[in-house]
C-alpha cells in the first residue's frame, strides 16, 4: 500500500508536469498557473536554503554558540544592501558591494592564474608524443587555440595573414558551437524522456500514482 502523502504527491507531480507540457501547444492558463507556482515555490526554496545554509550557521549559531560577533559586520553590510529600496540611504549599499566585488577581484587574480589560465596553457603545449594520432591531435589543438585567440584579437586589422588565421579560428569556433549545441539538445531530450518515463511509470503496475 502506497502512503497517502506519496500517492497525492505523485498525482500532483503528474498534474504539474502535464500543466508545464501544455505550453508546447501554446501559452494557456494551466501553464501560467504552473509557471507562477514554480516561481513562488522556487523562491521559497531559495529563502530556506539561504537561511539554513548561510544565515543560521554563519550568523545566528556563530553569535550564540561561538560568541563570534565579527559576523555582525557582514550582517550590517547585508542590511545596507536592503537599504537600496530607500533612495536617500541607497548609497550605503556601496560599502557592501565594494567589499564583495573588491575582495573577489583580489581573490580571483591568483586563482585564475594558478588554477585556470596556466593549466589551460600547459594542456595546449603538451609534448608531441604517443604516436601519429595523438601528435596530429596535438597540432590541431595548438592551431585551433592560436587561431581562436587571433579571431578575438581586435588590436590588429583582420586582413591578409591575420584575416586568414582568424577565418580558420571561426571554423573551429563553429565546430565547437555545433558540438555544444548538439550536446545541449541531447541533454534536453534526456530530460524529456525522463519526464515521459515518470508519467508512464507512475501509472504502471506498482507505480506510485496507482490506488487501484
Amino acid at each position: 500500500m502506497i502512503p497517502i502523502g506519496e500517492l497525492i504527491g505523485t498525482w500532483i507531480a503528474v498534474g504539474l508536469t502535464l500543466m508545464m507540457f501544455s505550453f508546447i501547444y501554446r501559452d494557456n492558463p494551466a501553464f501560467k498557473f504552473g509557471e507562477h507556482l514554480y516561481l513562488g515555490i522556487s523562491v521559497g526554496y531559495y529563502v530556506n536554503i539561504q537561511y539554513w545554509n548561510v544565515i543560521y550557521p554563519l550568523v545566528i549559531q556563530a553569535m550564540k554558540q561561538q560568541h563570534n560577533y565579527w559576523v555582525l559586520i557582514p550582517t550590517v553590510l547585508g542590511i545596507f544592501i536592503l537599504l537600496r529600496v530607500v533612495p536617500s540611504l541607497g548609497w550605503l549599499s556601496r560599502m557592501a558591494f565594494a567589499l564583495y566585488i573588491g575582495g573577489f577581484a583580489g581573490y580571483s587574480i591568483p586563482y585564475i592564474v594558478h588554477s585556470l589560465l596556466l593549466p589551460q596553457l600547459s594542456q595546449t603545449l603538451q609534448p608531441y608524443s604517443g604516436g601519429f594520432g595523438p601528435v596530429v591531435n596535438q597540432v590541431i589543438i595548438l592551431v585551433a587555440v592560436f587561431s581562436t585567440l587571433v579571431y578575438f584579437f581586435f588590436s590588429l586589422e583582420h586582413r591578409k595573414t591575420v584575416g586568414a588565421i582568424s577565418r580558420l579560428g571561426i571554423v573551429f569556433i563553429m565546430v565547437s558551437f555545433g558540438a555544444s549545441f548538439g550536446y545541449t539538445v541531447m541533454g534536453r531530450i534526456s530530460l524529456l524522456i525522463g519526464r515521459f518515463q515518470f508519467i508512464l511509470e507512475s501509472f504502471a503496475e506498482g507505480g506510485r500514482a496507482r490506488f487501484w
Binding site: 544565515i55 559576523v71 557582514p74 547585508g78 537600496r84 557592501a96 564583495y100
Partner: peptide, 13 residues
Amino acid sequence: NWVRIIVGFAAIL
C-alpha cells in the same frame, strides 16, 4: 563566509 552572508541579504533584496 562574509561574502556568503552579504549575498544572502542581496537575495532578500
